[in-house]
Nucleic acid binder design. Structure first.
Length: 143
DNA sequence: GCCAACGTTGGC
DNA sequence: GCCAACGTTGGC
């Protein structure tokens, strides 16, 4: 099953906020490359939440409640007929046992091809299966 | 359609 | 607070 990493600035919307709210619509993504990845999120996909700013670490796990859909606040289609500004509903699964810091990710060559490392400004990116396994180990998550 | 100028993000 | 990387805008 595919998994993804979503970045957020915790002072605006943190993983803890998601836990409190029980579910949230992940919106506000405007970057074209990030939107391409966002649109590929499907129901049940695992989502890793990364905090930028002072924390710079993967702090929690969430799940997509459905597939990406058109942002009702910003309707519009791409020339291909896809939602221009896609959003996705997510629910928290739980915090990681051990936050996985950006420094740790950058220091591990197995993450060299991860979007977080290659393009620091990308806010939505796929996490390939092999990397997800490493990430889960570092985060102290089972399976 | 090119590209310089400007704005934004996010790590340092 | 600075600046590199990248995206967007607007003049031509």
């Amino acid at each position: 099953m595919p998994s993804f990493l979503l970045k957020t600035e915790p002072s605006e919307f943190s993983f803890q906020d998601l836990v409190k709210k029980k579910r949230a619509t992940w919106d506000g993504v405007t970057n074209a490359a990030a939107l391409i990845h966002l649109r590929s999120i499907a129901k049940g996909d695992t989502i890793y939440i990364y905090h930028t700013g002072d924390e710079k670490a993967v702090v929690g796990v969430a799940r997509a409640l459905g597939g990406a859909f058109e942002d009702p606040k910003r309707p519009g289609k791409t020339p291909e007929g896809k939602p221009k500004f896609a959003v996705v509903d997510v629910a928290p699964v739980g915090p990681v046992a051990t936050p996985v810091t950006l420094a740790a990710i950058k220091g591990d060559p197995r993450f060299a091809e991860l979007g977080l490392v290659k393009q620091s400004r990308l806010s939505v990116m796929p996490v390939p299966g092999a990397m997800e396994k490493v990430l889960r180990e570092m985060a102290g998550l089972g399976g």
